[in-house]
């Protein structure tokens, strides 16, 4: 394809206004990082409670979370839009087409993987530690603290997986964010993914590929961290 062969020189030339691209990267990181931080604050307590207690419907709740990992982002975007729209229940907040709306939808998307992977690592650690801990005569709190310490690699993996899901999705941020960049070339709600779609829509595949390369590098960095981590403790 001509677009592919013409991309290599473009990667060197970088045919964009620097401000345009840096502002897009900033919006992408800002939205995804905040969404993942909030998501983590919610997910970890849930994962801990589920990992340490037995209750009726736990199996069902776990499968709901696992299902959430595959929840289509475009549906999440639609639901968040209906929620935030002027006519919706949270319409008074006036959040449609803002970064906050994008954070909300990415929060919904990132929470299931973070919870599920954290839960998996906590559960797997707990079995071993509980045995060892009890053998050594530790209290329940000792066992919990030990679990947290042992599961921290798995939890970091979970957070990074949530980040990967957030930064690479397009369906929801396009609907609730609106892909807005100002006339001054500064992105307001335009992310790397929505910018790529815009370029592709206009037939500028070469510039779309350059933006794609930037996104892939960002995601690769994240995945590199995950893999390095996985090499040490592994995901169970």
């Amino acid at each position: 394809m001509a677009a592919l062969t013409s991309t290599l020189p473009l990667l060197l030339e970088f045919p964009f206004e620097t401000l345009y691209v840096t502002s897009i990267i900033r919006v992408s990181l800002y939205v995804s990082i905040i969404a993942v931080v909030v998501s983590t604050l919610v997910s970890l307590p849930v994962a801990f409670v589920m990992g340490f207690t037995e209750f009726r419907g736990k199996q069902f709740f776990t499968s709901v979370i696992n299902t959430g990992m595959g929840f289509p982002s475009v549906v999440v975007g639609l639901l968040v839009l209906l929620l935030l729209s002027n006519q919706g229940p949270l319409g008074g907040l006036d959040l449609v087409f803002t970064k906050e709306a994008m954070i909300m939808s990415q929060f919904v998307l990132a929470t299931p993987p973070i919870t599920a992977i954290s839960l998996a690592s906590i559960t797997s650690v707990e079995t071993r530690v509980r045995d060892a801990g009890h053998v050594l005569g530790g209290t329940k709190i000792d066992v919990a603290l030990l679990t947290l310490k042992e599961a921290r690699n798995g939890i970091a993996t979970a957070i990074l997986a949530g980040f990967g899901r957030a930064i690479s999705e397009i369906g929801s941020v396009l609907i609730v964010g609106g892909n807005i960049a100002g006339a001054d070339g500064v992105s307001r709600t335009r992310t790397l993914t929505t910018a790529i779609r815009l370029e592709a829509r206009q037939g500028r595949y070469d510039t779309a590929i350059v933006l794609g390369a930037v996104l892939i590098v960002l995601v690769l960095v994240v995945n590199g961290i995950v893999i390095r981590l996985g090499g040490q403790e592994g995901l169970r």
Binding site: F97, I180, G182, A183, D184, G185, R188, T189, R201
Partner: peptide
């Protein structure tokens, strides 16, 4: 997509000190 909107919105934003969020 034709780029007209940016051409129109930049002077308007400057004139009133406002931002236009074009979707």
């Amino acid at each position: 997509d034709t780029g007209l909107l940016d051409e129109l919105n930049a002077p308007f934003g400057a004139m009133y000190g406002v931002t236009v969020d074009a979707v």
